[in-house]
Write a protein that binds this DNA or RNA. Sequence first.
RNA 1: GCGGUCGUAGCUCAAUUGGAUAGAGCAACAGGCUACGAACUUGUAGGUUGGGGGUUCGAGUCCCUCCGACCGCACCA
Length: 567
Amino acid sequence: MSPTITDEAASGAALTRIAAALTRAAAALVPGDALPEVVFEAPRNLDFGDFASNVALQLAKRARRPPQQLAIELLERFFADDPSLREIVSEATPLGGFINVRLAPLAWQHAVATILREGADYGRGAPAGERVSLEFGSANPTGPLVVVQGRTLSLGDSIANAMRFCGIDVTTEWIINDAGSQLDTLGRSLYARYRQLTEPNFPFPEDGYPGDYLVPIAERLRARDGARWESAPESEWLPAFAAYGRDELVAEQRVTCERFGVGFDLWQSEKAMHAAGAVEAGIAALRERGLLYDEDGAIFMRTTRFGDDKDRVIVRSDGRPTYLGADVAYHYDKLRRADRAVLILGPDHHGYIARLASIAAAFDRPGAISVMIAQQITLVREGEVVPMSKRAGNVLTLDDILDEVGRDAARYFFVIPNADSPLTFDLSLAKEQSSDNPVFYVQYGHARIASIERRAPPELLERALLGEGLTRLTDPSELALARRLAEFPETIRSVVAGLAPNRLARYAQSVAADFHQFYMHCKVLGDDAELSAGRLGLAHSTKLILANSLTLLGVSSPEAMERTESP
RNA sequence: GCGGUCGUAGCUCAAUUGGAUAGAGCAACAGGCUACGAACUUGUAGGUUGGGGGUUCGAGUCCCUCCGACCGCACCA
C-alpha cells in the first residue's frame, strides 16, 4: 500500500508545485477547457519513482497524439516553466505515458523533521465539525460476547480512533436489544437456573439459553432474594428475572469490552427508547411523510419506495413495534445528532441493509446511513477447526479468546483482513510469541528503537529530537524509511474513507520492515555525532509512528519485549 | 427460487477504489551475528486473480454469464 503523500511541510508542498506546473503545461499543449486535475499518486512499484501522474494518458485523445509523446512534451514545458523545480525534483521521466517523479532527499528529510516537531500529533486533522455516529459490537443481552463481536469491536474501535484522529466528532454507540421476546427467554432460562440450585431436576426451557453462564447469576440473585421467587407467579418473576439477567449480562459484556480496550460513548437501551416515547415519535415522523399505511391491523412502512424487496411491518397487529420500528426511532434520533451514521453488523444482517437505507431516505438523508458487514469467523487451533454451536452451548467466548491469546494479538488479528471477507482466526498462531506472528514483528520494531534510545548518550538524543543531522540521511534505506513515515497521514485518511483499519495494520508492518532494513544497513550510534543524531532522529520518528499506529489499533507499544521460550 | 458478500501463491491475506512487471507474511530451499535486541535480515522458488465473454489506451477491480463457498429472504431480533 502506498497512498499519496500530502504532507504540507515537505513532499506535499513539492507535489503541489509540480502539479501546478504540469497543469500549466497541459493547458498550453491541449486545446479546450475543463482539463482534468493533475493528480499524483505513489505507484505500486517504487522503481518508477516516488510519484506518478497519468495526465498524459487521460489527455492523449484530446491532444491527438500518443500518450508517451504527450508526456515528453509536457515534461519539456514543465522545467522550462519553472527551472527551480529542479531543486525539489531529482528525477522526472516519461514512461509508457506516465510521468514519473522522484523527489530530492531534502523533501524526505523535511518530513522527518516535521514528525519530530509534531510528535504524536503528526497527521492529526483539525476538527472539521463533521459528526458521525458509529454503532458496533451490539449484542443481545442474553449471554457472553462471542468471537464475531470481537471482530466488530476491533474494527469499530479502530475506525473510531482513526476518525477522531482525523478531527471527526465521533459518538460510539452500543445498542442493547432488550425490548424483544429474547428477554422473556432469558428470564425463563435464569429462573430455571435459580430453581435448579435447590431442585436439580427443575426443567430447563426447550428454547432456553444453554451453557452454564447463568448459574452464577442465579446464585447472586438467590443470595440477594433468597427463595421468595419460588412461590411467585410467572407474571411477577418473569419481568424481574429478565431485568436482573439483562443488567448482569450487560455489565459482563461491558467488562469484556473494557478488557478488549473498547469503550462506548452511549449504551442505548432499546427498552428505554420505548419508555421515553421515542418510538412513537419516530413513527409519527414517518406518518407525516406519508410513508406508512395500515393493513391487517399492522402498520407498514413503504420501504419498497426506496428499493427494498417488500414493505416492512413496523408495528405489529397487537400494537407492539417491531425491531425495525424501534430502529426507525433510533436512527431518526441518530440523524438529528450526527451528519451520518455508520453501523458495523454481523454477517446475519445482510437483509437489513436495504431497510436501514430506507430509513435514511425516508428522512431525506439518502446515503447518510452506511452499513459495514463483518463476515464470519472460523476459529482454528492446531490446524483444526474449532466447532462452535450456540445451541449446544459450547461457544468459545471473547473472554476465552482474550485469555488464550491476549488483547494485542486478538485486536490485531481481527482487523487484518477486509471486513467483508471471511476470517480464519488461527488461535495457535495468535498465541505464539514468535516471528510468525505479525503483531510481535511490529512491536519488536518499537522495542528495538526503545533499546537504541536507552543506549544513546542523553545529549545526543536531545540533539536528535531537535532535528539535527537530518540532512545527512542519504542512504536508500534511510530515505525509504523516511518516505514510508510520511505516508502516515494519508494512510489514516484512507482508513477513515474506506472504513478499512486493516490498511493501518499493514502500514505498521511496512514501517517495521523498512526500519529493520535501515537498521541492518546503517549503524545508528556511530562515531560521526551529526550522522548519529540524524539517524537517531529518524529512529525516534519511526518509534512515534509505530506507537501511534498501534495505539489507534488498540495494541500496546512495549518499550521492551519479554522473551518467552517456545516449546 | 430471489437477493447480498466472497473466490487472488501450498496456507493467511494485500493491491492507493480503472493504472505500469498482481504484492506481503507463513511454510520450502540457500545465505548473513566478536556491531546499537538474530523475535532481525539477503536471496531463490511459488500465479491463466474460479471459468468464459464484453466495455477501453489499460480490468484482480466495472457489465453479462456459468461454477463454487457463506449469509439473508418474519407481524424474530
